[in-house]
Design a protein around this nucleic acid. Structure first.
Lengths: 235, 235
DNA sequence: CGACGATTTGACTCTACTCAATGTGTGTGG
DNA sequence: CCACACACATTGAGTAGAGTCAAATCGTCG
């Protein structure tokens, strides 16, 4: 249930600003909180959703991170998204009630679990919640189309610079450091996502460092010059 | 108003199967129809929406086609979508009530205009309509993420073959011929969308024809072997 | 009929891929 | 706690596919 003492409530959650709860007043937020359940922590490589499985819950990432991916006809993984704290996982599944993608934890990850039928009931009564769901979906639509355009006509360096800036911005939006953060995904994951080879990712991270835009220590990235990085991203 | 004699009603519209009206019973559809207005026909190159402009309507394409695009910092066009009959235009704008992209007619195009505030009111009363909106948005989210993956790691030939197959499928879904259709966009548009140069598009169309997969006559495409085309698309 | 935009084709270049070898970190079992 | 194994990452060399630049042809709309 929602009220175990170990459960963090929406009211106290640092991610509520980006989550469904964002526009809700105290009373509404309390009602949303009652339907939200905590989910036991995922460990690295644990699979949260599998393509084809019925959609019962939306998940909100409280801490940690996940990747979403599909498997093509040849069983090859194609990463379509990374999820950070505050993100909702499962919107692409609302269409037909089945998950369309797999999602897997990249590290130890804590989630809130939102039963879909209860959410739907609440949404009827709370226009602000309905609006927020629309808004989050709409944002996601635009973001992925934008990404599509941004990646399509850009060089490897521009893509990776853009990726780092986007990550940085997302961390900053979440109240975390946008200047220095950990890449919880592997170089191969990044390459898969950006349509580049592992070697290219590695080479370009080195090049960006040589250029004085970033500082890389394995998984740790520090952006030493946003200006330089933005230049290289072509924006 | 909705009831001008020249207005085609949802009840009679051949596109209703893909539109908002899809899951509605006769009574609900009639109510939806009352809020929908026709829009005067767009001519080729007419701009329907401009990025930054307030979102007042969703549009449903009744006939013709449009492209959606953003302009980057350098004023360069980046096409993010093509809209065919039955498609809704404007979902990416729901987030903040402003259009995020431009959309321009590729040929003479007829539209239904759906006032947003009325739609919102109706959605409160009609769960099926609400569900359908969610479903359409969810489908769009998945489609663009899928596209992203499909384009990212694929050769020019695979991209173009995939593009043609997707178009074909969309025409077929709309009760039009999936075997033979007109490309209403220019080669440059296709290239922009797929992240390829005009020359590459041209060369590959020729190559696909030489391969016996398609037959191209300027804007007219006939798929002569779906099997071959699917092979070349890598699916 | 003429002009302009769109498309096709050719020659050359360059970016990012593949293949290959080596270095680094992590985590597991003894 | 240490050592080994395996996954992850880096770097180098050579290659191929798509881009750019250039020129010719085709189509369409005044």
């Amino acid at each position: 249930m929602a009220n175990l003492s170990s459960h963090i409530h929406c009211q106290d959650c640092s991610m509520s600003a980006l989550c469904l709860a964002q526009p809700l007043d105290a009373d509404s937020m309390a009602r949303l909180d009652t339907i939200i359940q905590r989910h036991k922590p995922l460990h690295k490589r644990d699979v949260l959703t599998a393509a084809g499985a019925p959609l019962k819950f939306l998940y909100a990432v409280r801490s940690g991170s996940l990747k979403s991916y599909t498997l093509d006809d040849n069983g090859v993984e194609q990463i379509i998204d990374f999820h950070l704290p505050g993100d909702l996982v499962g919107f692409d599944a609302l269409a037909d009630g089945k998950h369309r993608s797999f999602s897997q934890a990249l590290e130890t990850t804590m989630l809130c679990e939102i039963p879909l039928h209860s959410l739907d009931e609440l949404a009827v009564q709370m226009p602000a919640l309905r609006k927020q769901m629309m808004k989050l979906m709409s944002t996601e639509i635009f973001a992925s189309k934008q990404l599509l355009g941004n990646l399509n006509n850009r060089s490897a360096q521009q893509r990776l610079a853009h990726f780092l800036l986007t990550l940085s911005q997302r961390f900053a939006d979440r109240g975390l450091s946008g200047k220095s953060f950990r890449l919880t995904m592997t170089r191969a994951d990044i390459g898969n996502y950006l349509g580049l080879s592992v070697e290219t990712i590695s080479r370009i991270l080195s090049a960006l460092q040589a250029d004085g835009a970033i500082d890389v220590q394995n998984k740790l990235v520090e952006i030493t010059s946003f200006e330089r990085l933005r230049d290289l991203a072509g924006h």
